[in-house]
Simulated assay, not measured.
Amino acid sequence: MAGSTALETEAAPLERAPAIGRVSDPRRASWLVLVVFLAPALVIYLGLTAYPAFRTIFDSLFTIEGSERSYVGLANYRDLLGDETFWIAVRNTFVWAFVAPILDVATGLLLALALYAGIPFSRFFRVAWFTPVLLSYVVVAILWMWIYNYDWGVVNEGLRAAGLDALTRSWLGDPNTALAALIVTHAWKWAGFNMVVCLAAIHALPSEVLEAAELDNCGWGAKLRYVIVPMLRPTLLNLYVLAFIGKMKVFDLVWIMTGGGPLWATETVSTYVYKRAFNWNTFDLGYPSAIATVWFGVVCAAVIVLNRVFKSRDRLEY
């Protein structure tokens, strides 16, 4: 009897354990608990994101001058078709969105590979290459405006020192080079972020595969092309999509460095919306709302298409 009592006493906690687990399981939380935790985030999202988005779509159907508004239907959208500046801004933004991420991700990958290979002073370079990510766009813009300065900028001074005076130019004042100069500046700022992500992904690769490649006398170039890059493909594609989204709404760097000039050469959709809404004194918020609405749809559609195109059909198993 005493033995059976002891066994029952020991078994009692084991029987109660599942009940305790069910009570503490967050997936079985009551609606009151869910509301308490989700309500603050939902209120902020609805007030600062959802409502402004729907209000912008609603305002695009009106001509708004101060407190007066008149319904115009789809007239603002029809005006967009003949807006030459808008299409220039669309072209520049697409160049940003499709070309610049390739430079960003490729530069980050090269820096990560350099650190992975164990270059001298790797700890210093790890910090130095990541530092631009921590700088604000204002600091980065002013710094690179100095670098691109025609008279005493580092770029032109270096060309003059190398005897290439014919290549010196006003990099931000020339319509043929202004957009490329901004893309290089943006890549310099964000290469460190891509470097950190790529470096973490490289260190997460299975060592057995890399060791097998070395045993097969696979050179560094071949190992990079046939082993490392294919295994990093999901990471690189995710970085490209993130960079694509960021470039589709680029504003800060362009506004500070060129303001969309010269001759609309660096105008983006975001800067054009700002100018039409607040900078040109047109006193009509309906038309820029239509531009923002169209571009919102374009960004959403582009992200969906990219996710489908880049979706890996067969998973890579380590």
Rank of each mutant, 00 (worst) to 15 (best):
S289A: 13
L285H: 00
A187C: 14
S4C: 05
A292L: 10
V241L: 12
L103R: 00
S4H: 12
V184M: 13
L210D: 07
A292E: 07
A301S: 11
A106E: 09
L109C: 10
R28C: 07
A301W: 02
A301K: 03
E208P: 04
W129G: 02
A75R: 00
R91C: 06
D314W: 12
E208K: 05
A191S: 13
C300L: 15
V90A: 12
G66F: 12
F62C: 04
G3V: 09
A128Y: 04
A6S: 06
W144R: 03
V95L: 14
A212P: 01
A41Y: 08
A292D: 10
E211G: 09
A201L: 01
L61C: 02
S312N: 11
F244L: 15
V36A: 15
L215K: 03
L285K: 01
Y150D: 14
V133I: 14
A181V: 06
I20A: 15
S270Q: 10
W152Q: 15
T131R: 09
G192Q: 02
Y148P: 11
A19S: 07
A301R: 05
G259M: 06
I119N: 09
V99I: 08
L179W: 01
D252Q: 05
L199G: 06
T293M: 08
P52Q: 04
D216C: 02
G192M: 05
W255V: 06
P262K: 06
L179H: 03
A243D: 10
A161R: 08
A243F: 05
G192L: 03
F124V: 08
D174M: 04
L42A: 11
L285R: 03
I147H: 01
L103F: 15
A97S: 14
G47H: 08
L46M: 13
G286H: 00
V23W: 04
A243W: 00
L210Y: 08
W264Y: 15
R276F: 00
L111V: 13
I88V: 05
W190R: 04
I102C: 06
S312E: 14
Y71A: 03
F37N: 12
E68R: 14
L224I: 05
S24T: 14
G260R: 04
W280E: 13
Y137P: 14
R315I: 09
P13S: 07
N149I: 00
A39H: 01
P175S: 09
S30Y: 04
